[in-house]
Computed example of a mutant assay.
Amino acid sequence: MTEYADRVRVAEAAARAGADVAAGGFRTGIAIEEKGQKTDVVTQADRDAQRAVIEHIRQEFPDDAIVGEEDDELKAVPESGPVWVIDPIDGTNNYVRDIPVWVTSVAAVVDGEPVAAANAMPALGDYYTAGPDGAFLNGNELAVSEKTDLDRFVICPTIWWDYDRRDEYSRACEVIVERFGDMRRFGCAQAVLGMVAAGSLEATITNVEVNPWDTVAGVYLVRQAGGTVTDLEGERWTHESQGLVASNGTRHDAVLEAAQEIEQIRTA
């Protein structure tokens, strides 16, 4: 799999380049814009960081497609060919509140499958990478949690439930505290997926539609660290799936059942 070594290297370098730009605006009182909803915000740092990521990728892969959250980049992953999936600041709501849990995310995808990923968290000094040889945090190889006791599981409900779907959000929290040991929420899907890969969390669940820039890199991290990621039907997760269930794999069936309970409210 050495054919993807260059993409692993470029993913990490591009994520670091974008993260450096974003870090320059962190905790500086940067202006905030709303993209449509009061909780969907963007800053100039998002745009500047995305440009820095793209410029870095284009130096070595000038013809590859790019899927990105901001500006006029593609919003869906092509079925074939090489593509880069980027999020300049995943967790912008944390970013503008001076909370250091945010990520500059870059993933390389070939024919619909991730082959490299990098999630940079400069405010915490954490840099996640993944390639064919595994997943790493600050150069140290990652492995998912080995816990099997559901009473010891810590699970995060992730992605945003809109205001008209708060009953699903409430149910997500309810099923987690009913079925598992504890719950966390961080407001940054890529950070959460990194935590599952690192064994800090046993799982994360959502039933909502997910964007590729919020998920692809982190899903690859989890899988390369030995975890399991499926859709709500228990089928292998892809960038076109609805919902996302990522776990350490030891009790994925129980985690999946919890996610399905959330979805039952939507379809009732």
Score class of each variant (00 low, 15 high):
T204K: 00
I205T: 03
I205H: 03
I205W: 08
I205Y: 06
I205V: 15
I205G: 00
T206G: 03
T206Q: 06
T206I: 05
N207K: 11
N207E: 15
N207H: 12
N207F: 00
N207Y: 01
N207T: 10
V208P: 00
V208C: 02
V208G: 06
V208S: 10
E209M: 11
V210T: 15
N211M: 12
P212F: 13
P212G: 09
P212C: 10
W213V: 02
D214H: 14
D214I: 03
A217G: 06
G218S: 05
V219E: 12
V219M: 11
Y220F: 15
Y220V: 09
L221Y: 07
L221K: 04
V222C: 07
R223D: 03
R223Q: 15
R223Y: 06
R223I: 02
Q224E: 15
Q224I: 00
Q224Y: 07
A225H: 07
A225I: 03
G226C: 03
G226E: 04
G226A: 07
G227P: 00
G227F: 11
G227D: 06
T228E: 14
T228C: 08
T228P: 01
V229Y: 07
V229N: 03
V229T: 07
T230F: 10
T230E: 08
D231G: 06
L232N: 01
E233Q: 14
E233H: 12
G234V: 12
G234Q: 11
G234M: 13
E235V: 00
E235S: 12
R236Q: 13
W237A: 02
W237P: 01
T238Y: 09
T238K: 09
H239P: 00
H239F: 12
E240L: 14
E240D: 10
S241D: 03
S241I: 03
S241L: 09
Q242R: 15
Q242I: 13
G243P: 07
G243D: 10
G243N: 11
L244H: 04
L244N: 02
L244P: 00
